[in-house]
Design a binder for these strands. Structure first.
Lengths: 201, 201
DNA sequence: TGGATTTTCCCTATTTTTGGGGATTGCCGC
DNA sequence: GCGGCAATCCCCAAAAATAGGGAAAATCCA
């Protein structure tokens, strides 16, 4: 397989292990070549994203990170036309995977990985739109606390706000998500990578 | 760093990406050298485990079919004296990590990985013991309901028992597990495969 | 058989959450 | 400037959970 023919890949993956692993798998097989590596999607990264003319981007959705940012592929789409493949390492809500052209699981065999890479290049999604009824920053913070099992009083103390405010936020959270129980909200937080299971109990 | 000096490492990891990644990281740094790779812990693997005189084993606990029970390290201990390091890729109950000499996270930096590898070699655990206080059948049933977000009243009606009984069971569950909050119990139930995340919200 | 465990039930009191109202401030976009 | 939204605060009443206590059957196992 000729070097010149291979597709340019950009990795946006904070795990050195996984970066080296994917490089290794691609080196074994040719066809794809890692041309750039980013470990986050910070401001400085965005210019590299724009300048580097990658054919395909493999991203670990964890970079869209807990609570702070509006999740998703759409962020990438602003800076690059490359196909975007998610690297699946953790549990995440089904809907969130659908925005990517393909999803590679860390346990996939090299053959499967290559197949999915090809698939990502041919069958491209065109309109990745972000969902509407997002939780506000504060609401996410409160939700995280709730999912951790904190009391309203504890949350109020943590953020130096009134317990009434906490309760109001919780009302809005249940209204926006449609989830009425703590158990449900905990699962919601887990599936949306707002918390890690180790953060609870 | 001399080749002859490097420690022998056995990987028991089903993910090709992660195997190649760890090989890459170790190649970059010397000191450790991957001598063998297994992708499961089947019967045939056991002889290789015994014969290969590894200094340290890195294992992805997913090969133990996870969460189900506190197996794990003890299985390895039957066939090898090597230090055992877990590769942390997914959420798992806190206690289950404690049986390993070290836990490397996929997002750890190479420096951290090496540090943990050294630590695993020096500070070795000696008695990997399993925990005792299991939940009774009824308690598991109640726990499942709690994790689903059901009210005590609803649980009582479901099993045709008094709400007092439900409360008593919940007291015993919190006492046995040491988990006081619904959020924590939900995670516990998820991690122990008592419920599926789809069963909640 | 006898002890341990499980399962069941009950009470009181307190704490916490939920659900229904409201209200003010400030910021952003049209 | 006006509407919408985010974030803050407040009250009240009802529902639910928590934390003590105790106790009696049923079941299991050694």
């Amino acid at each position: 397989m000729k070097e010149g023919n291979s597709k340019k890949v950009l990795l946006i993956i904070p795990s050195r292990i996984m970066v080296r692993g994917i490089e290794g798998v691609f080196n074994d097989l040719g066809e794809f070549r890692v041309e750039g590596i980013l470990s986050d999607i910070s401001r400085t990264s965005e210019t590299r994203l724009k300048n580097m003319d990658a054919d395909i981007i493999i991203i670990d959705p964890i970079v869209f990170d807990y609570a702070t940012r509006p999740v998703g592929r759409s962020v990438i789409a602003e800076y690059s036309d490359a196909a975007v493949v998610a690297l699946q390492t953790a549990v995440m809500e089904d809907d969130l995977w659908k925005q990517y052209d393909e999803v590679i699981n860390v346990y996939d065999s090299p053959a499967t990985i290559i197949k999915k890479m090809r698939s990502a290049l041919t069958s491209r999604l065109d309109v990745p739109k972000s969902d509407s009824h997002e939780l506000s920053t504060r609401e996410k913070e409160i939700l995280i606390c709730v999912a951790k099992g904190m009391l309203n009083k504890e949350i109020a103390d943590l953020y130096n706000i009134s317990i009434y405010t906490v309760i109001t936020h919780r009302k809005n959270i249940t209204r926006k998500t449609g989830i009425k129980t703590v158990a449900g909200l905990t699962v919601y937080a887990l599936l949306n990578n707002l918390i890690d299971s180790s953060a609870v109990e």
